[in-house]
Design a binder for these strands. Structure first.
Lengths: 241, 241
DNA sequence: CGTGAGCTTGACTTGTTTCAACCAACGTGG
DNA sequence: CCACGTTGGTTGAAACAAGTCAAGCTCACG
């Protein structure tokens, strides 16, 4: 299964921001989302572990992921790292960039990542002319905020197994909305250290919990792909306990 | 020291959202922020521990705190609670409400709270006519997001004493911007359970850490007020370790 | 063939929670 | 007036979840 990429039609419906990606070259979609006014976005490809941008960078541009996974991260002076969100195909790197040129966290490619960038000034101008686009982008923005809120609750008040179970379920949901899940099986390029950094745990502990999940028949992980074998069980761990 | 209220001129400068509060009745400020088009906001006062709104409420209105402290909280089914932010005089309850009527967390008064509400439709309409107001509100929105991001990092990657030190310093900064700090002394209506819920710790542990801080001569807390006696020391604990 | 990144496992340590008891302040109602 | 419950804070002992350290394994890569 190699569906780390995007299915344009579906994504456009599931993920408002993605309209940016397809606003050129895909006639049908372009008409729908009235973004044809934007000039051709510039396209970039970067290797795993490389940075798309780094903390405090001045970006005159809004990057949107087209292909691959990335993570937005914050690193403390002593090396501790927190991943604030995983970016999937169709995600805006950060909706904040629409109004503010300086980004507060680094964005690192997990897989090979292909992304396109739009000039902020142009997007902003278009935004005011087009209330439909405006409401779509504000939804993106609101969802982004809701996810960090949720993350804070998870990190503040949930145990290790809950956090990991929820991470898996969240990713699975987001991938499913992009039609990137088939039979509970999905592409899963995360290393355990990504999971650790996203859940505020250590790699060692993540390994132990994941082994436990596997032993309990909840998930199977191999070859950069993950299958949820016991959805109910996983949900159960994720919600309560 | 009883400065839990606001100094209108200062707040208006320090805190864009506060202009909403003063847009009526304060001629000078009203002219500056061109919000006179908005009808008189409705005013409310509620007692400590009461809710301003609850999770999933449908709010056709945007509340802004004028006086007192509140907290926006999320509560899990088993009673675990996480405070996502403390709301001080001049704060919008949640910038999300400008575009989205349903609020994702409860907002609870800590002290007696006085707040005013503005109809979302009216604010929204005004927003499009007034790019200056727009950019001010987007700054509020961005700051709100930055704070949750920071919270997530703290909860994910920092130890108990760091979290508590940072909470105190953050509040002190925000109060200082509102001229509510004199000689490192500020009104501090938080109970230890608020600190616990904000830092993802237990009340017992908060008590221990705070006692430690007091013993080390970092802070003094009494009678609902807090003094930072050793700013450098506190900063040191907050940043590194 | 060596090197480095990633994963697993076990033994041990530590930070935080849990449980419990106790005290102080406060308001309420008899 | 006292008795009482409630809320908030403190402290200590024991339990536990997660971290640290360390060793060993696989795999990919040059």
């Amino acid at each position: 299964m190699q569906i780390r990429s995007f299915d344009e039609g579906t994504l456009c419906a599931a993920c408002p921001a993605f309209e940016f990606n397809v606003c050129r070259g895909v006639g049908q979609v372009a008409k729908e989302c009235s973004l044809t006014a934007l000039p051709q976005p510039s396209e970039h490809t970067i290797l795993p572990r490389r940075l798309i941008c780094r903390e405090c960078d001045l970006l005159e541009v809004i990057p949107i992921i087209c292909h691959g996974w990335a993570a937005s991260t914050v690193t403390l002076s002593d090396g501790r790292r927190q991943i604030l969100s995983f970016l999937l195909p169709g995600d805006v790197v950060s909706a904040v960039l629409i109004f503010e040129p300086v980004i507060q966290c680094s964005v690192e490619a997990i897989t090979e990542v292909n992304y396109r960038t739009f000039k902020r000034t142009e997007v902003k101008a278009l935004l005011f002319k087009n209330p439909d686009l405006f409401s779509k982008l504000s939804r993106v923005w609101i969802e982004e905020k809701a996810r960090v809120d949720q993350l804070a609750v998870d990190l503040g008040r949930r145990a290790a197994d809950e956090r990991i179970a929820r991470l898996i379920l969240n990713l699975s949901d987001r991938l499913a909305r992009r039609s990137l899940v088939r039979d509970q099986m999905m592409d899963f390029p995360l290393r355990q250290h990504h999971i650790a950094d996203a859940t505020g745990l250590t790699v060692v502990h993540v390994s132990k919990v994941l082994s436990e999940f596997r032993r309990a028949g909840l998930v199977e992980i191999n070859e950069r792909s993950l299958t949820i074998s016991d959805l109910t069980g996983l949900r159960c761990i994720a919600n309560m306990r």
